[in-house]
Amino acid sequence: NSRPGENSRGSENSRDSGAVQKARAELRERFLRLLSGARGRPGRFCLWGGIRLRADFGAADVESGTLQTPLGIQRAALLRSGDLLEFSFPLE
């Protein structure tokens, strides 16, 4: 199975201009900041088939897109990005 976002890692990238690289870096930096700011916050996770979970956000494997989150009491779980549709956190 392909990882999410293989698109931006294709061979076409050799043609990418500085402007594209700059935009990509800016967007990626923002994303990483927001994701890392979500650590430890109470999240709501929406999965395929109407499955909803509430769990504190643990950490993310930004490479494979795996999210780690405690589920239940003292249990940690890994959520696959492919299983997830959306997740959200309250802002401070």
């Binding site: 999410p4 976002g5 698109n7 931006s8 890692r9 935009a23 990509r24 967007l27 990626r28 923002r30 994303f31 927001l34 994701l35 979500a38 930004v62 897109g65 990005s81 997830l84 549709l85 959306e86 997740f87 959200s88 956190f89 309250p90 802002l91 401070e92």
Partner: peptide
């Protein structure tokens, strides 16, 4: 740019805002 996940901020009235990540 890696996963195309879109991050939204919502500011509902009389409520705390939230951040939503749509895969």
């Amino acid at each position: 740019p890696v996963s195309a996940t879109i991050v939204l901020a919502t500011f509902p009235e009389n409520e705390k805002g939230s951040l939503s990540f749509v895969m």
